[in-house]
Amino acid sequence: MKLSEMKVGEKGRITAVAGTAAFQRRITAVGITPGSVFEIIRREPNCPLLVYIRNTMLAVNADDCSRIETEAL
């Protein structure tokens, strides 16, 4: 399942990150890598997705979330 499709309150684990090398580097640096466990905190229309991952509250652009594959926990 893509990160963009997960519902608020759901927990999951990142399985793969697609996209350009530059995007992969950017997203890796903030803690989104295969194996990371996360929880979806907030999803509002016209706002980035709020994800809690590696002790950090991250706001991630909705389009970018569709490049991130996850599995539900």
Partner: peptide, 30 residues
């Protein structure tokens, strides 16, 4: 997919460093 792979290695290393060195309460997501 080099960056996700090296990233996983780096975070796995961090996890192994923190294992046994960080205790107490888990920080909350709320």
């Amino acid at each position: 997919n080099g960056a996700p792979k090296t990233g996983s290695c780096k975070y796995a290393w961090i996890d192994s460093l923190l294992e046994g060195c960080v205790g107490g309460a888990k920080s909350s997501a709320a």
